[in-house]
Simulated scan of single mutants.
Amino acid sequence: MPRRRSLHPEEQEVWDLVARTARPLHPPRARQAETAPPAATPAPVPPVAEPAPPAPLPAFRIGARAPQPPARHDLAPPIGQQIAAHPLRMDAATHKAMRRGKLMPEARLDLHGLTLAEAHPELIRFVLNAQSAGLRLVLVITGKGKDRDRGGPIPTRFGALRHQVPHWLALPPLRGAVLQIAEAHLRHGGSGAFYVYLKRSR
Rank of each mutant, 00 (worst) to 15 (best):
M1E: 09
P2F: 08
S6P: 01
L7E: 07
P9E: 13
Q12K: 13
E13V: 02
V18G: 12
R20P: 03
R23I: 06
L25R: 08
P28L: 07
R29D: 12
R29T: 12
R31I: 04
E34Q: 13
A36N: 12
A36T: 14
P38Y: 14
P38A: 14
P42S: 03
A43I: 06
P46Y: 02
A49E: 08
E50D: 11
P51C: 09
P54Y: 02
P54A: 04
A55R: 10
A59D: 02
G63R: 01
A64D: 09
R65D: 12
A66G: 07
D74G: 12
M90F: 05
M90G: 00
A93L: 06
K96T: 06
A107G: 00
R108G: 13
R108E: 14
H112E: 06
L114T: 10
A117R: 13
A117N: 15
E118G: 10
P121G: 11
A130V: 04
L139K: 05
G143C: 06
G145E: 02
K146M: 09
R148F: 07
R150T: 15
G152Q: 11
P153G: 15
T156E: 15
T156F: 15
F158L: 10
W168A: 03
P172A: 13
R175H: 14
G176N: 03
V178N: 01
A184E: 01
L186N: 12
G190E: 05
S191K: 12
F194T: 00
Y197S: 13
R200V: 13
R200W: 15
R202T: 15
